[in-house]
Every structure is written in structure tokens, then in C-alpha cells.
Design a protein around this nucleic acid. Structure first.
Lengths: 235, 235
DNA sequence: CAAACTCAAAAGTACTACTTAATCAAGAAG
DNA sequence: CTTCTTGATTAAGTAGTACTTTTGAGTTTG
């Protein structure tokens, strides 16, 4: 019985709240939760505590556990992001994340141009070259891998922990695009060229050019997603 | 004894980790934590669970509770933000938050210009007028209040929950500036004019102008903070 | 000397008993 | 008849104990 019932129950209950299956304002009794998820009181309590710190619920004596409004949730919690991406409203979640990405990455590119170590500059250039090669070879999987690595490295080179933490968000957005038939057979040559330009600008410590090129990249990506979401993107 | 020992212990322990007092890699035994904070086993366990979901610690059997690397922390958790702002490295925390703000707010202004309701547009304009008035009257406290309200409303009008959630971050940055002698006696007239321009642009549904004006605002603020941090900002 | 084995330490899980707070309702006072 | 008080009840919070599982470290054995 010592096999992490905690995470199991947290995932189920959290996903139920994130998906709206348990609507805001709904009240649960902790005893009821225990039996519904077959967990002991200890586990149930700790799960509720965690949900509480994520802002998903609030507990009051004599009342029970209340599901809070989405506006009060901690939307940057990796678990919540995952639950929303796996939930019914995946397109909306993807839109939100893409917008965040489009806001942050240009700024991150600017700081990376100023603050990256020599090693990081070299690795970013190398990844840009890999991108060119895999794009020409139409190897979409390898392209995605290098794309994720490129953006990840850039974010961490910005020397801002809050930017760096968005690496998983960017990875999710990029993977979401490739995995859902939004990508053409061959990555757009302009997008690849812009990646090379970003890499060059960072290498040459040119923050203005790095930011502008990155802005072009994310704007293009954002428009693609917005178009896909507004038409249809069931799954 | 039923007076939320949980939050008390969470705050103490979390602050100790966030401030580096408990260095990454440090190992604690949960029994030891119980007695150090005078909490019961139940409370100690739940606190550790919460810290674990925040990425501050990881627990392993036979080993204990290990403090994780800052890179693994969930830097967007409001509690962690608070602990860092209250800790020894407040200037660094303020720098990080200001950079995030400078990345997000221009983008948020753009979306607000597209998506705000008529009521929101009106209220944003009204707040800009209040800003002008209080600036001329050199009432810095009232100015700060309206400034916070202005940015808060704009962020929520962007219709992106992740942007909206940064409202407290922006409030913290703005308050941090006023509260630490960084503000001149009278708010800079250009900054006030830019706020008015943002409000106008949103009112007229002009995303490009809204974004540009907001970019000017946050860049100015960011440079101020950067200058103050690089010179001295003990407290 | 290495691989397997045993032991013990520490977190995880389960359960029970008790405490505190808050809601709701009944009853007393105005 | 309204309002305030008070008490009963309910459900979460806290405390503590017993038991299980994992796993690191030391020990034995081939």
C-alpha cells in the first residue's frame, strides 16, 4: 500500500477540477473524498492541502472543501498546466500558453544576447545549424528536438529564473504544433532563417536584433495557433 | 492549538529555504523538523508535501527531505515570490520580476486593446485621468494606488489568465519602487502621458499603439530598477 | 573482491482520539 | 415580530500511535 496513492489521487482530483467537471463553488467533504478515491484520511488531507496551495480549493471548517474560481488558481503550476492541456479545453490552454510564450521569448532573447556565456553562444549557434539541416532533410522529429533544445537553452541563457522556467511551456507549445498536424511537411524556410538570425545576434551580443528576430518567430507561431484554434482543433 | 500551525511552519521553513539559509542539497529528517518547529507529525508532513509540490524539496525514504536546486523551484508560486522578496536577495528578486513584467505587459496591452469590454475601456481611461490628477497633485500614495489598479485592470482585460495572474507581481514592483525612495517627488510627466496614451489606444482598439506605449513605460521602469540594483539597494 | 543478503533507518500509510471553529436553529429579550 | 444570544452539531484541524515499504549501508559468502 505504500505506492504513492498521493500522486494518484492528486492527479485525478486535480484534473477533475481543472477540466471543470467539478465546477467552481462545488463543495466536497473530505470524508466523501476519502471513499471516492479509496484513500486514507492522511492521503486525502495532504492532497487537499496541496490543491489548496495551488489555489484550486479552499477549506473551511464546518463547510468543507470548496472549489475556487479559475481566476484564483495558480496558473503557472506545472501540474495545472498539464491538467488543462489534457482536459477538454486543450485549445484554449494552448492559446494561453502560446501568448505567454510570445510575450516572454523576445525579451529572453534580448537578455541572452547580453548575458549568455561564450559556451552558450556557441551551443545556440550549433543548434541553429542543426535546425537548418534537419529542416532541409524534412526530419520533423529531429527538428522538433533541436527546436525545443534551442529555445530551452536561450531561455536559461537569459539568466532570469522565471524565464528559464517557461522552457517546459515552450516545449509543450512546440510539440503540440508538431503533434497535431499543424506543421507543413517541411518547416518554413523563413522560420528557420529567423532562428539562425537569433543565434547570430546572440553570438554577436546584439540584443536588439535578437529580440526583433525572435519576435518575428513567435508572432508567426502565435498566428498559426490562433488560426487553428479559431477554426477547429478538437484534438 | 487549532490555529493554523500549518501556515506558520510553512512560512518559516519556506522562507529559510528561499533565502538560502537551508542550502540546496541539505537533508532534513521529518522528525527533526517536527521538533524544530514544534509541530505535530501531521502538520510537518503536510508542510513537507506542500514544499515538495512547490519544487523546493524532494523526499526519499531512508534519506529524508532534501532541499532542491533553485532552478527546480516553481518560481511563479506566490508564496515563493513573497519569501524571496522578504529575503536577503530582494534586489535580485525585484530585478527578475521587473524583467518578467517588462516582457508581459506590452503584450497584455495589445490583447487588451483587442479584447477589453466597453466597460473595461472606460474604466482604464478613467484611471489614466486619475493618474494625471494625482501626479500633478504630487500625491504619491494615491498615484501608486491608481497605477496598480490601472495595470491590474489592463492585465485582466487581456483575457489571458496567465497574464492576469501577474497582477500581484506588477503591484509588488510598483510598490517596491515607491516604497524604497526610487520615485522622484512628482511622477515623470512622460510616464503619465504614456499611461494616457495606452488608455486611449485601448479605448480606440489600437493594439499596435497600446503595445508600443506600454513598452516605453516598462522599459523606463526596468532601466530605473536595473540602475538602482546595480548601484545599491540594500533595503 | 564482488555479488548477494540482511538489517535498520526514515518516509509513507492507516487509523483513532481529541480540539476548534462555524453554521444553523431554537429560544429569550426587546 | 424582530433581533440577539446561546447552544448543539458538524466537519475540518491537530495529535499521536502503530504498521509497511523502500533503500542505503554494512556484512557475509562464494
Amino acid at each position: 500500500m505504500g505506492t504513492d496513492r498521493h500522486e494518484e489521487m492528486l492527479d485525478e482530483l486535480g484534473a477533475a477540477i481543472a477540466s471543470g467537471e467539478l465546477a467552481p463553488g462545488a463543495v466536497l467533504r473530505s470524508e466523501e473524498l476519502q471513499e471516492r478515491y479509496g484513500a486514507s484520511r492522511t492521503v486525502a488531507r495532504e492532497v487537499v492541502r496541496v490543491l489548496e496551495t495551488m489555489g484550486l480549493t479552499s477549506s473551511r471548517r464546518r463547510v468543507g472543501v470548496t472549489v475556487r474560481e479559475p481566476a484564483e488558481w495558480n496558473h503557472y503550476d506545472p501540474r495545472l498546466i498539464r491538467w488543462q492541456l489534457d482536459g477538454a479545453d486543450r485549445p484554449a490552454a494552448l492559446r494561453t500558453l502560446t501568448e505567454l510564450r510570445s510575450a516572454v521569448e523576445p525579451c529572453a532573447a534580448r537578455f541572452a544576447a547580453i548575458r549568455a556565456t561564450p559556451e552558450e553562444r556557441g551551443r545556440i549557434r550549433a543548434l541553429a545549424v542543426h535546425l537548418q539541416r534537419t529542416a532541409r532533410a524534412r526530419d520533423l522529429d529531429a527538428f522538433l528536438g533541436h527546436d525545443v533544445a534551442f529555445h530551452d537553452l536561450l531561455l536559461s541563457a537569459s539568466r532570469n529564473p522565471m524565464f528559464a522556467q517557461l522552457s517546459s511551456v515552450v516545449a509543450e507549445v512546440l510539440a503540440g504544433r508538431t503533434g497535431h498536424g499543424l506543421m507543413p511537411d517541411e518547416p518554413q524556410p523563413e522560420a528557420v532563417a529567423l532562428h539562425v538570425e537569433v543565434a547570430e545576434a546572440i553570438d554577436l551580443a546584439d540584443p536588439v536584433r535578437a529580440e526583433r528576430a525572435m519576435r518575428d518567430i513567435v508572432e508567426q507561431a502565435r498566428e498559426e495557433i490562433a488560426a487553428a484554434v479559431s477554426s477547429n482543433l478538437g484534438d
